[in-house]
Structure formats: structure tokens, C-alpha cells
Design a protein around this nucleic acid. Structure first.
Lengths: 240, 240
DNA sequence: CGTAGGTTTGACTGATCTCAAGTTTGGTGG
DNA sequence: CCACCAAACTTGAGATCAGTCAAACCTACG
């Protein structure tokens, strides 16, 4: 085993979506990094102002979000272990969104210029990272459709389907076998609804028999019907 | 002047946002292409199924859009001359959205593999194209905030501000000096509203004195106030 | 001069929000 | 082990923003 198996999940994700050579993988594993552990609700951006570092999510869950003037918060995406949380920072000085953990999480920080230089010298890695940002964009597009065109119940179902599909792709188990980590307010911020209304819709989904709510978590029980209710077709994820 | 000044606007946009060398620009101008002219409402994807080509918008306006199951259409972005309409196609076989002209338009089609090969051999161009897709993603993020968190009037104002800012950046004149080309239904599809409600909100913006409506077009008269009403801060455009 | 596409307006409906009061849960300190 | 607390979840009643339906009105264009 390598010392740097920290990057194993990220490598697995990039390899799944692009074709990396053995040398690319070795180079990623040789990247310098530091580890940190974060509590739920930890603001990741706060930690990277001084020394620009790029953040890999090793364990736990996180989200990107952004605020409107009136204070409303829009969650832009959820993230699972193996995701790189701030890739646009590779090419831009300033990011236009914030990143926050939604559970306890383990993070690896890599100096941005090191990663940038590696991407420049390794075309296959460059392409893999570019594809990663393109998949992010595809997810944003689908979320736009979700928030702009679907009713509350469909929106929430779609969100849960996507998250379950991505967890499964990340190797966290089968989509109908694990609890989803986000609370109702986070679901609300991601769908453009209020937590009160999310609560009512979850009750309906429960009554429909497609989810099971145990204390603070949601668990999908009938994935196939959930896909139908949520107007969900995983093609746009391109395997992410 | 070059024979291929077709790419002038695209080159200008890419140079504005990234640093291209003279050789990169020459290489772009040497790309093979064919020109076509499209009517308003022309479905661009229809034309590229057989021979995969990448589409540059030379003149006129276009939008990307995507449908939900119930038939609702979400416009994902508007495009101005100089924009490349389907860059994700450079790395993915399938696109997950459609592209349509919203006015009469002039298009240049470049064989995708030619452009792909050029990007691979020219790092600066590769980076410029990557940045272009990252700016697209930044715009999607802002639209998510717009549709998910802002009320109808603010949403519409924000949309108009962004479009005006991008037209100005593309060299089409000053933002408070030209008519916006989209109709009320297109504004509705872009903001997740109905055209009836868009109509009422435009009337209010008119009454507020920030826009002027002449027959079929909208014209911004008080840009500064419009920015405030629309909660608009152009930073996320990164100069696009 | 008729037609089609886009705009405008009014009356009514309804999905979602707001406000406000409980309830449950998990953690913490005594 | 229990008592307490904060955070999250639940529920109800009433308000509102935006949607629906339907009709009329432009205006460009053939």
C-alpha cells in the first residue's frame, strides 16, 4: 500500500470517467498534501485564503453554496468522498461560491500550483480534470431544470435520486441501502423550497412508500419508483 | 485581412479571458469550417448528428435549453456572437441539452476532432477553452441562485443585466443603448416563470423607469438602478 | 387585409410561504 | 443514570406570490 492512499477515491473517480495512464496515477499519489478533519458545518473557504490550496474530500459529505442579497442561500451541489471541491480555483483567482461540510469530514489539501503544474505536464490528467468540471456543469444544468421547472415533490425526489446515484458510483454501497446525510433545511436550500414544505413533501414520499424516515435521516426504499417520481435519468451524470 | 475573420469575435473573447499567443490565434484562424445561416427558432443540434461538428455563433443570438418530463422548458443560458455553443461536445460523446437560435443567426461549423487535436497540441488554447467552460459553469451557478432564491422581478432584472453585460463585453455597444432580442416567453423559460407573469413584471420595471419597451423589444434605460433591482454583480462573469 | 405570433389584461385558483406552536432526538454535565 | 438543552423535525392556519384560463389587442408580413 502507498502512503498516499489518501487520493485513492479521487483517483478511482477520475479513472472511471477518463482514461488515466499508470504514470498519471503515480504522479497524483506523489502530490504533497496535508490532512485536516472538519466538523459538520465547517466553512472550507475560510481555511484557504492565505495559502491557496485545492481541497479533496476524503471522507464525509460537503456542499457548494452561494447567497442572494436578501440572505437566501442556494446550495449548488452536494459532494461525496473522492470529489475535488474547488477545481475552478485551478484557473481562476477568485471563486464565486462557498464550500461547507454537511457531516464530519476528512479533507486533503494540495498546493494549487503543484496540481496546476501537474495538469500542464500530463495531458491525460488535464483532460480528466477538465471532464470533471464539465460533469459539474452538467449537474448544474440539471439542477436548473429541477429548480426552474419541477414541482416540489418531484424536485426533492430528483435530488435524492441524484445523491444516491453518486454515492453508489463513489463506492459507498447500494443506493437503496444507505441513509442520506442531509437535513431538511439543506434539502430546502438545494431545491429552492422552505424546510417546512420539504417536511410535508417528505411525509408524502414516505406515505407513497418510496422512502423511510428514521430519526434524522432519509433512506430510499423503492429506487425504481423514486426515479419515476423524480423525473430522474442518470445520463447527465456521465458516470459521476 | 484574413480570409477567416469568421473567428474574429471568438478569438477576441478567448484572448480577453485568457492569454493566447500569436501562434494560437493563427492556428484558430486556420481551422476548417463551413458557414450556415439560421432562422429564429432553428434547432442547432439537428444539424450536427451526422458529422460531429462544433458550432461557433458568428452573428445573432442563441440559447441552450433542456426539458423536464412534463414538457416545461428551462433555458440554461443565452449566447452572443463569439460564443462557442457546444464545447462540452469536445470531451463528451453526448450532450445533455439542446441549442436553438433566438434570432436570425450566422453559424460556423468546425470539425470537432480538428478542434480537439488543436487544443491538445496548444496548451494556451487548451487552457482558454477550459476557462470558457468554467465561466459557463459560473453562469449556471448564478442562474441557480436566481431561479432558486430570488423573487420574480429581481430574477428578470438580473437576467437582463447579465445579458446586457455580456453583449457589451462582446463589443455590441453600450448596455443601455441596445434592444434585447428575447421575447417574454423566452425570459419566462429562463427564469422559471410564466410569460404572463413576466409581462406583468416588465410592466413594473417600465413603470419604475429602468426599462423601455418598444414593440417587441426591451431596452435598459437606467443600468445602475437595474443592477440594484436585479441583485446583479458581474464578478461571476469573469469578464465574459 | 387576413393571419400568426407575440403582448396585454382581468378574474380566479392554487402551490408554496410565513408564522407560530409543539414534539422528538441526541448530546452534555451533574 | 438522569435532567436539561439545543437542534432538528412536525403540524396547523392563514397569507401571498405566481400560475391558469381566457379573451382581446397589436404589429409585422405575406
Amino acid at each position: 500500500m502507498y502512503q498516499n492512499d489518501v487520493f485513492e477515491r479521487a483517483v478511482r473517480k477520475l479513472s472511471r470517467m477518463s482514461s488515466l495512464k499508470e504514470a498519471d496515477i503515480t504522479a497524483i499519489r506523489a502530490l504533497p498534501f496535508r490532512i485536516s478533519v472538519a466538523q459538520p458545518g465547517y466553512d472550507i473557504a475560510r481555511d484557504r485564503n492565505a495559502a491557496p490550496e485545492c481541497c479533496f474530500l476524503l471522507d464525509g459529505f460537503a456542499c457548494r453554496h452561494k447567497h442572494a442579497r436578501d440572505g437566501g442561500r442556494q446550495i449548488l451541489s452536494f459532494h461525496v468522498p473522492g470529489d475535488i471541491l474547488d477545481l475552478p480555483g485551478l484557473l481562476f483567482e477568485q471563486t464565486d461560491y462557498d464550500v461547507e461540510t454537511i457531516t464530519a469530514a476528512e479533507l486533503a489539501w494540495v498546493p494549487t500550483d503543484k496540481l496546476r503544474r501537474l495538469a500542464k505536464s500530463r495531458p491525460a490528467l488535464n483532460e480528466a480534470l477538465w471532464r470533471d468540471t464539465l460533469v459539474d456543469a452538467a449537474i448544474y444544468r440539471e439542477w436548473l431544470v429541477n429548480v426552474g421547472q419541477r414541482d416540489a415533490k418531484t424536485r426533492i425526489a430528483h435530488l435524492l435520486c441524484e445523491f444516491a446515484a453518486r454515492c453508489e458510483a463513489a463506492g459507498l454501497g447500494r443506493a437503496d441501502r444507505f441513509d442520506l446525510p442531509m437535513n431538511q433545511e439543506q434539502i430546502a436550500d438545494a431545491t429552492g423550497l422552505t424546510s417546512v414544505h420539504v417536511n410535508r413533501m417528505l411525509r408524502e414520499l414516505d406515505r407513497d412508500g418510496v422512502i423511510l424516515r428514521t430519526q434524522r435521516a432519509v433512506h430510499i426504499t423503492d429506487l425504481e419508483r423514486m426515479y419515476r417520481i423524480g423525473d430522474f435519468d442518470p445520463d447527465y451524470l456521465h458516470g459521476a
